[in-house]
């Protein structure tokens, strides 16, 4: 996966760059619309992470640039603007996804991988975790060719953990991923634990690998061990 990051803040750029490199993702940076357009013309990328407020204008211009030149790239807007209408506007203009700053790196990775799967690999990917197969097209999970009935949230949770293989994921990041603005209404993050428990139960009872690992007894993080 090759990513072009458009971000004018050096600190933020370094964060993302370091995290993506640790994840084994190739990432290059541009700090302005001009620099981004130059790179888009000269090189090929799979995904463009786009900040909206750039020193030489609104990042939206780049979307129009990409569309007018038929550049084959997925666009993920990463903006400080977190409003429904801004999201709708970005997506209507042709962006593939929208993420709001500040975001958890695990969330960014999950979004990038989902985009890569869907747009670059053509969507008919089957993911394998030991003997567990995830069909992202049909949104189905099988263990030894037996369909496991998962709820929408359990499926999302499984994919999220899969995307962040071998990374620590906090309960808060999971809660924000699954429930977004409604996270506050849960009152407690123990509900994340409950979801994880149900998911594990379903996998284990179907004979799947118990790949979700509770790191430290406190139950604050989960990791894949497969």
């Amino acid at each position: 996966m090759k990513v072009l990051l458009t971000e004018d803040n050096v600190d933020l750029q370094n964060n993302i760059l370091t995290y993506l490199q640790n994840e084994g993702i190739l990432c290059e940076c541009a700090t302005s619309i001009q620099a981004c357009q130059d790179r888009l013309v000269a090189f090929e990328y799979d995904i463009l992470i786009l900040d909206r407020m750039l020193p030489d204008g609104d990042g939206i211009e780049i979307i129009q640039f990409v569309k007018s030149r038929n550049i084959n790239i997925s666009i993920l807007i990463a903006s400080a603007k977190n409003e429904l209408d801004d999201k709708v506007e970005g997506l209507n203009l042709g962006a593939d996804d929208y993420i709001t700053k500040p975001y958890f790196m695990t969330e960014l990775i999950a979004r990038l991988k989902a985009l890569y799967r869907r747009n670059t690999l053509g969507g008919n990917q089957k993911l394998q975790i030991g003997n567990i197969t995830i069909d992202t097209d049909k949104q189905e999970v099988c263990i030894n060719n037996t369909l496991i009935p998962l709820t929408k949230k359990e499926y999302d949770l499984l994919l999220y953990i899969y995307a962040n293989k071998n990374r620590i994921i906090t309960k808060l990041a999971i809660a924000e991923h699954l429930w977004g603005d409604f996270t506050d209404t849960l009152g407690s993050l123990d509900f994340v634990y409950q979801h994880i428990k149900n998911l594990r139960k379903k996998i284990i009872s179907a004979g799947g690998n118990d790949f979700i690992q509770t790191v430290y007894g406190s139950g604050y993080k989960y990791a894949i061990d497969a």
């Binding site: 993302i16 995290y19 958890f104 790196m105 695990t106």
Partner: peptide
């Protein structure tokens, strides 16, 4: 976002 990213790296 910078602070949150650094914490993610730290973790």
């Amino acid at each position: 976002a910078i602070a949150s990213g650094k914490l993610d790296l730290l973790m």
